[in-house]
């Protein structure tokens, strides 16, 4: 039980990569990549967890109360917003691929020639 969150993060990571490898559709591929990235959130937040610790916010809570690590939370928070915009960039690439190659299947794309 005490390692379950870390195992969960590793499992999400592997399932996400599996999704990318067997993908037949660009949108499925982007979602799989986002899933892979979300494993880092689970890992970061579970590393920073302190048993019986509260949120690291000391409004109306006396200073020195047991709280979880704020650094990993800050990393996760910026990461989420950035991962969404990167997913949007990849979806834009998918739209272009559909227009030019008329396919959404990564296997059917021919290599780009200069």
């Amino acid at each position: 039980m005490s390692y379950l969150p870390f195992v969960l993060a590793a499992w999400i990571f592997l399932v996400g990569i599996f999704g990318i490898v067997r993908s037949r559709h660009f949108i499925h591929l982007v979602v799989s990549l986002s899933l892979t990235q979300s494993s880092t959130y689970v890992l970061l937040l579970s590393i920073g967890y302190v048993k019986h610790g509260g949120a690291p916010i000391f409004k109306d809570v006396p200073l020195g109360t047991k709280a979880v690590d704020p650094v990993v939370q800050a990393l996760t928070l910026t990461d989420i917003v950035v991962s969404v915009t990167v997913a949007a960039l990849l979806l834009a690439v998918a739209i272009e691929a559909k227009k030019h190659a008329k396919t959404m299947n990564p296997d059917e794309l021919r290599p780009v020639r200069g």
Partner: peptide, 18 residues
């Protein structure tokens, strides 16, 4: 090899909380 869940050892976060 990681510290157990909930048994956090990082000094940086603890210092910042204080």
């Amino acid at each position: 090899g990681l510290p157990k869940f909930g048994d956090y050892h990082g000094a940086y976060g603890k210092i910042l909380d204080k």
